[in-house]
């Protein structure tokens, strides 16, 4: 395949369930070797999009090309080259850790000996070699996730589809998963992932689209998005209960933009420290003050007026 041609190309891609539109005419492309993310809150249409790319959910309208093929007619051929990590673990609880990998390889039509070889290699890769003979159920959430990732690699996929890869994991387990994904990316595997964690999107994605209410509202690299839709820094002010409501108008002109959230006030500016000083000069006495860099969370707030995690 020509390197320049996109691996995944979607034009006006739409998914309807009866009267409900889960994905509303989205356009995007994913280039080979890229880590591409769908960032958005729960219910934004990320999983529906992923399932259409994974050829397990028929598209309602628009066009979708994956690896140069049409999911309507070549679903099985496309699936043969994908590695899917679904949102919820779908491991085979009746089998051991190693058998989970082997039988999965068999579903792809790989010879048994090859499945065994790859299974051992992958268990090594996700640091589960010593658990190979155990059943799946007693594994921790992080281990199950790693096993699911190993399972999705058994067919040496060209594209990995990861739906909320670290949701529900503790911080340590998340970092281990991120580390493995980062290594895969370095090996040239194309990663397509959904997340509602901005730190995950920033860590892993070369480029991402922000989804909200079934539509794509912005697209770019994490850095581009922050530059385009936010300032360099943010000053966060928290006030004692009941005080914030009495501060109407007192923030006007502090920084480029003010966001008033229920529990705090955000002032966007390239120099956060200056805003804090200016606020103090105006006689504002917040309980706590925090100056930080802008994140994708701020981009999302700007674009939709809402937080990512509600």
């Amino acid at each position: 395949m020509d390197d320049a041609a996109p691996l995944i190309l979607a034009r006006h891609l739409t998914k309807r369930f009866g009267a409900f539109t889960a994905v509303d005419g989205v356009d995007f492309e994913v280039a080979p070797g890229e880590a591409f993310g769908f960032l958005g809150p729960n219910g934004a249409g990320k999983t529906s999009t992923m399932r259409m790319i994974g050829c397990t959910s028929p598209i309602s309208d628009g066009e979708l090309t994956i690896l140069g093929m049409d999911p309507r007619r070549q679903g099985a051929d496309i699936r043969a080259r994908l590695g899917v990590v679904p949102q919820h673990d779908t491991l085979d609880n009746e089998l051991t850790v190693r058998e989970n990998l082997i039988i999965y390889g068999r579903y792809f039509g790989l010879p048994r000996a090859e499945c065994q070889r790859r299974a051992d290699e992958l268990l090594e890769f996700v640091q589960l070699s010593d658990r190979g003979k155990d059943l799946v159920e007693p594994l921790s959430g992080g281990m199950k996730r790693r096993l699911t990732i190993a399972r999705s690699l058994i067919n040496e996929p060209d594209v990995m589809l990861l739906d909320e890869p670290t949701t529900g994991l503790d911080p340590q387990a998340r970092h281990l998963v991120w580390d493995r994904l980062y290594r895969l990316k370095q090996r040239g595997v194309t990663l397509v992932l959904t997340t509602h964690y901005m730190d995950e999107a920033e860590q892993l994605c070369d480029r991402l689209v922000v989804m909200d209410k079934a539509k794509i509202v912005a697209e770019g690299s994490p850095r581009q998005l922050i530059e385009r839709y936010s300032t360099k820094e943010v000053a966060e002010f928290r006030f004692p209960a009941g005080v914030q409501e009495t501060l109407d108008g007192q923030f006007d002109g502090l920084g480029d933009r003010i966001e008033r959230l229920p529990d705090r006030v955000l002032a966007y500016a390239d120099d956060g420290e200056a805003v804090v000083i200016a606020a103090r000069d105006r006689g504002l006495h917040p309980e706590t003050v925090l100056v930080r860099r802008s994140t994708l969370e701020d981009v999302f707030l700007r674009l939709t007026g809402r937080s990512l995690i509600e």
Binding site: G54, T56, G75, A76, D77, R79, A80, L82, V84, P86, H88, D89, T90, L91, D92, N93, E94, Y104, Y107, F108, G109, R151, N155
Partner: peptide
């Protein structure tokens, strides 16, 4: 869910 995951492979 086991069968859901099998459907993500070439198995129909």
């Amino acid at each position: 869910k086991t069968f859901a995951s099998i459907l993500t492979t070439p198995m129909s």
